[in-house]
């Protein structure tokens, strides 16, 4: 049976979030596997320009779902609008990027429709007429093949970087854009969001560093940060950290690498006692080379490391500092 796939494109304050191209690429890949029809929707207030942009890609149709109450973003308005929309334009699969905004409303939308969202998906397979979604579990230590066991809409959110934005195929001509206006009654929206802001300007800019020595929870105690600092100094690099280290106040927040910290791509990223959770990886996987020291041979960080040392960092780092000093002398 021919079915519809709908990609919900993310926009914030009238700008398309570029991660949405990855979701379109995922949608195109699933359409190619299944032969289903791919459509897209933009949800917001005055977002027709974005709908037009998406219509240039290989999609059958783009919906511009409009309501003044959709700006600024609230989960109540988004869920109301999308329920209305999906009631009139049924889809078998609804795809979105796994952004903070989507995390905020998709579980509510799926629950309201008594169905489920398969979240943070990294890949798709089509086996024996069944779609299989792969997603990480246990902090990336395992991957699961997950299938949809319901009967309604299956929502799927994709992890950043799991499909390539530059693989999006352009359409033969512009796809038709259909405007759908939704009436959101007063009282539906309960939260009152204030302006989005950035905390005080960052003191260190790690994006310019060529060498970064990054510490994770394997460093155990605040006083041991000094050891990592010595290695960074010996190498002439900057010190950075995973989130728990900054949460504990062992290093300032502006040295945090990852989805809620800085994104860096140095020549060398040396990870000490970092497990390699995806929220950390997204901030450093673009590094030219990655060296990881971790006592757990199965730590996910090793999956992206060029050079790996399985062992106790407290044995290896002092020896390393000595060797670096020798080499530089």
């Amino acid at each position: 049976m021919a079915e519809n796939i709908l990609v919900i494109v993310e926009q914030r304050e009238g700008k398309l979030n570029r991660v949405s191209w990855e979701t379109i690429a995922a949608g195109q890949a699933i359409a190619a596997l299944t032969g289903w029809t791919l459509e897209a929707a933009v949800v917001g207030s005055g977002v027709s320009a974005i709908a037009g942009e998406v219509a240039g890609k290989k999609v059958a149709r783009v919906y511009d779902v409009e309501s003044a109450a959709l700006e600024p973003y609230t989960p109540d308005a988004f869920v109301y609008a999308l329920r209305e929309f999906l009631g009139k334009h049924p889809a078998a699969l609804v795809l979105m990027p796994h952004t903070y905004q989507v995390r905020d409303f998709v579980p509510k939308l799926a629950a309201a429709l008594q169905t489920t969202a398969i979240s943070d998906v990294i890949g798709v397979k089509y086996e024996g007429g069944k779609l299989i979604f792969t997603r990480q579990m246990f902090q990336g230590k395992f991957v699961a093949d997950v299938s949809f066991a319901g009967t309604g809409i299956c929502f799927v959110t994709f992890q950043n970087g799991s499909f390539r934005a530059d693989k999006v195929e352009a359409g033969a001509g512009a796809a038709p854009v259909e405007t759908v206006t939704v009436e959101i009654p007063a009282g539906v929206v309960r939260n009152k969001p204030q302006e989005v802001f950035k905390e005080a300007k960052q003191a260190v800019d790690l994006t310019q560093a060529e060498i970064i020595v990054s510490v994770g929870r394997g460093i155990k105690e605040q006083k041991n940060i000094e050891l990592a600092k010595q290695l960074a100094d010996a190498l002439g690099g900057e010190l950075a950290a995973s989130r728990p280290i900054c949460d504990s106040g062992w290093l300032p927040m502006d040295r945090q690498i990852g989805s809620s910290g800085q994104t860096v791509a140095p020549k060398l990223y040396l990870a000490l006692g970092i497990s390699g959770a995806i929220q950390h990886i997204v901030g450093m996987k673009g590094s030219r080379s990655i060296v990881a020291i971790n006592k757990d041979a199965e730590a996910p960080i090793f999956e992206i490391a060029d050079y790996a040392v399985v062992g106790n960092l407290f044995d290896i780092v002092p020896a390393l500092i000595e060797e670096v000093k020798k080499a530089k002398a």
């Binding site: 299938s147 060296v291 050079y307 060797e323």
Partner: peptide, 30 residues
């Protein structure tokens, strides 16, 4: 509403070289 068909160890995407030996030797190699 979602079923785990299979759980498995992820495939490595990179050709990781493991450096082995006692700390001093590993440090030298690195």
């Amino acid at each position: 509403l979602q079923k785990i068909e299979k759980l498995y160890v992820p495939q490595k995407s990179k050709n990781t070289e493991f450096l082995e030996g006692p700390p001093a030797e590993v440090a030298k190699k690195l």
